[in-house]
Design a protein around this nucleic acid. Structure first.
Lengths: 240, 240
DNA sequence: GCGCCGCTTCGCCCCCGGCCGAAGGACAGC
DNA sequence: GCTGTCCTTCGGCCGGGGGCGAAGCGGCGC
């Protein structure tokens, strides 16, 4: 009873188009100011303020004041995972909009993207499979742990394992709606993504349109990234 | 844009307490009549009818008329998976209600339960791990396939593999909110659960209270079930 | 100190949607 | 065919919540 009530409360926070647009924008993993989010949602500043207050109060969004700006981000990777799940269901249930591509951002989006703070899409799934296939990560209760070989290999790639361990969950699964498989989340997933971006193995694709909430989530594998990740983890990618 | 709109539309369907109660009840995997769902939600027949019409129209619930009754069930296992994800987030975000047990149904619910049509909880996760650990199932693109040994072993257990193949997805992962690990879904997951119930290795726990929507999801492992599943798949379970 | 800018609060309007009672349609059993 | 049951549709009421403009508050820069 109380359970289904909490359930509905969370859903109500996601049910408003303006809030949904804000959350979708925050899925890119970057912290945005209230003004930016108001523009993304297409509403005025007062309305945005009220929406954000409710999201923060509901525990979905965290806020950190900085000077005269207030930066908002998703409260946790769990929130991101749930949003991804809902997006996948929306895609599966909604009448595919006539045109062949079922998601407006299509192929590039399915190939490689950010899921809040870690990698998703075909690339994310392939990375997870590569890590498990080489025995760099091994399943343990509640998630994954690194093997000795994995420690060495990941460190050689430049992944900050110390930072990865400083998180509540070191490595766990996150559902990938487009591939219907798991990809790696948790501290390790975050640091792996950070490493790939830092070394320019992956670059963010620029958004074509201003205000495109999904724009900053798309990633492109660079030739160097394909070589390095392919050599070490067997990730083959024919992404554009 | 159109994406976030669809997203919000689905969330709006889940945002009403009455609809949430109905969907939660349907998570047990059984088809219920409109009248039963009205009672579960604590509303009158007209209101329930309107809610169900919206759920059906939104693609979350399927209906099959039978005589003068109309039986409702979740439209797909994907819907069930999303509901589970939302429930997990609600549990994580909501202030744990003072008492130690975070979900009202506590231990038994975490130990073994139905996730729509397949097994979840510690038992579901352990089953998935056991199947993968023995090489009965092997990862393939988009999910899992059975090995030769797995075919023989599952058939020996009494799992109807032909029926399992008759589904859109043979075997795929489903997120388990309580364990934060994957358990087995898809046709194979469904037939495995059906087999366990048919052979009385698992039995449904009776609901203590009338109208308890989660009641029929709780499962108990019988001594015979512990023996058979433990022998063949190494599933150790200390569930009550 | 003054003005600018980002954000919030307040007051107000309006509309969406949830609920019920009553009436209407459909199906099974006698 | 009549009656009872299950479910839906219709009409009407009401509350919650989203939107904006105006005003208030606080940090920053000239």
């Amino acid at each position: 009873m109380t359970t289904t009530a909490a359930f509905a409360t969370i859903a109500a926070l996601l049910a408003d188009p303006a809030r949904a647009a804000m959350l979708t924008a925050l899925l890119a993993g970057e912290a945005l100011t209230a003004g930016e989010l108001a523009r993304v949602a297409g509403i005025g500043a007062p309305a945005a303020s009220a929406h954000l207050a409710r999201l923060v109060d509901g525990g979905l969004v965290a806020v950190q004041p900085q000077g005269r700006h207030r930066y908002h981000r998703l409260a946790s990777a769990e929130v991101a995972a749930t949003l991804e799940a809902l997006g996948g269901l929306a895609e599966a249930v909604a009448p595919p909009p006539a045109t062949g591509r079922r998601w407006p951002h299509g192929e590039a989006f399915r190939a490689a993207r950010l899921c809040y703070d870690h990698l998703a899409g075909r690339l994310g799934v392939a990375l997870q499979a590569g890590l498990a296939g080489r025995g760099w990560i091994v399943p343990v209760a509640g998630g994954w742990a690194t093997s000795a070989a994995g420690e060495a290999g990941l460190a050689a790639l430049g992944v900050d394992l110390a930072a990865a361990r400083g998180t509540r969950r070191f490595a766990c699964d996150c559902m990938d709606w487009s591939e219907r498989r798991m990809h790696l989340a948790g501290g390790l997933g975050r640091e792996l993504a950070a490493c790939c971006l830092r070394r320019h193995w992956l670059v963010r694709l620029p958004g074509e349109r201003e205000g495109d909430p999904l724009a900053r989530r798309r990633l492109r594998l660079t030739p160097e990234g394909a070589r390095c990740l392919g050599d070490t983890l067997g990730v083959l990618e024919q992404a554009a």
